[in-house]
Nucleic acid binder design. Structure first.
Lengths: 190, 190
DNA sequence: CACCTGATGTCACATCGTGTCATCGGCTAC
DNA sequence: GTAGCCGATGACACGATGTGACATCAGGTG
């Protein structure tokens, strides 16, 4: 038997979600989270940069996954189609199964501006990763930055729409639809 | 003579900018800022929600200014043209004059992820204000959210380009150019 | 002249987040 | 097999952040 129970980060995340749901984010202290997970405060901060970060454990690898999909994508796609392909591929793994978890996290995140702030930073990190992948694939830097920012915004709004809508509608279809609507909105009005 | 010197918030902001420039953001404590401004720590936190907020004093009213320009805009503009009109109008007041101040603030903001995080929250607040103004002007909510997010991203990237470029190029022209390039990027590739 | 208002000061305090050293199970080298 | 290293955790002290509660006092108002 190992000296320490495995998955310390996951146990901390589960404990945090429970306490946040029971008492709210602000009323939950880090020592309380650590205690429920059977660890100490110091160990919490070894796994998470700060208290907010515990809500984003699942998304840590998302930017690099998307970036890899972008660099390995089939040639010939336009910039935006490439981005849609990458986001789609990274988020496609039986998303419906996680709907409740995502909704629970989102409910907590929307309860505190601090947490929305962190979510925005994560989205910006995704946009940065996509921009860099585009640039190293030959896209001009200004175009890459513009397209990556737009794609990140599209993804966030699509995810929100997906969560608010009925089960069964795929994120892929919503993303596609949002992209088309934004295209029409941006086009010079007659 | 008034009991207290006026412009406490402005004095705190100036003191903070000086100390951040001299010693860096992380090495500057709130008591040090307050002392240089001739005030106490407690008063600092009465004017600013937290240490980061002191860097965004000048932008506090920006979202509501843009929102007002949107609701008072001439009729007949398309959604995106309306947004460009609002952003343009709100940022047009002799921006060149503030270039150095904006650049100094930006240099500090880019030195710490915490500060970029806050900047992103401010941008999101601007997007929210624009979205709400569009909605109360009759734009369908999903379109308003999409267009406002895109416009906010365009504005941020345009400001960055403006700062990096030579003096004399107007933000208006960069914004216009970025909008056209994003339109082309989003269009279905042949 | 008494009272109210509002910005500031003072003090106590909880929480956050970090630096530093100790602990000790398991793995590797020899 | 045993000596020693490695890496995750514990223990503890501490500075900094941010808030609540109450006091102070100039100027305006009745």
């Amino acid at each position: 038997m190992a000296r320490w129970a495995p998955d310390a980060a996951l146990r901390l995340e589960r404990a945090a979600m429970e306490l946040f749901t029971e008492n709210g984010y602000a009323a939950t202290t880090v020592p309380a989270i650590a205690e429920r997970a059977g660890l100490t405060t110091r160990t919490f901060f070894r796994h998470f940069a700060d208290k907010r970060d515990v809500l984003f454990l699942r998304e840590r690898e998302f930017p690099s996954v998307v970036a890899h999909l972008l660099t390995d994508a089939p040639a010939g796609l336009g910039t935006i189609d490439l981005l849609m392909h990458g986001l789609d591929g990274a988020a496609s793994g039986d998303l419906e199964r996680w709907r409740d978890d995502i909704a629970a996290r989102r409910a907590i995140i929307r309860s505190e501006p601090q947490l929305r702030e962190r979510e925005l930073l994560k989205s910006a990190g995704l946009a940065d990763a996509m921009r860099d992948a585009l640039v190293s694939n030959g896209t001009p830097a200004p175009d890459a930055a513009l397209a990556a920012s737009a794609a990140s915004a599209l993804f966030d709004l699509a995810l929100e729409t997906w969560l608010a809508g009925p089960p069964g509608v795929t994120l892929t279809s919503i993303l596609h639809d949002h992209r088309l609507r934004l295209t029409r909105l941006l086009a010079p009005s007659a």
